[in-house]
Amino acid sequence: MLPGVVGLIQATEVIKLILDNGVPLKGRLLLYDAMKMNFKEVSVSKDPECALCGISATITELIDYTKFCDAKPVTSAQEEFNSESFELSPFEFKTALEYDPTAVLIDVREQYEWEICHIDGARLIPTSSFDPKSSGLSKESSIYLYCYKGQRSIMALKELWKAGYTNLKNLKGGIDLWAEDIDPDMPQY
């Protein structure tokens, strides 16, 4: 179990701080890789320009954290790209798929997710190898995309949009919401 190890190290450091004993994990970031089973350490320095604890700090009281962590556009193109205009609810998505003779359904999740569940008739093109050019998708067809929650598929959709595809649909809420609204027999993960 991955979090287990990390939580126990965290407990150890808390206990050392209280005992005021040993060498605390200050100024060092411990990196743990469960798959390689190794620990690495990198140094963490105080940033003189830190907005909170730096010399000319600008944060002097608690701020609006939702705003601070809000999405910033990844590229300027995103400003003109309105992701909502491509979104369909699971019910709308299902209906459109059934009535659209040019529909092509693409699952952009990874192989291991596909193996848990997928929508019948879909073709798997994981985002990790997603490339509009080599996808073989026709600009004449309507492309219906989905992922787990709808975030990765909108990124893939955007790639297609940038590459000149126009007839694009995204499953809002992804296969997770699909399982809830359309297919109660589908396992959720």
Partner: peptide, 26 residues
């Protein structure tokens, strides 16, 4: 004492700017 996880990767450190160390924003 801060710990975070992504998939099989964990990060752990102590932020203590009051004793001269860095903070999360550093």
């Amino acid at each position: 004492v801060s710990a975070s996880i992504f998939r099989f990767h964990g990060q752990i450190t102590i932020f203590d700017p009051d004793s001269g160390g860095p903070c999360y924003r550093c």
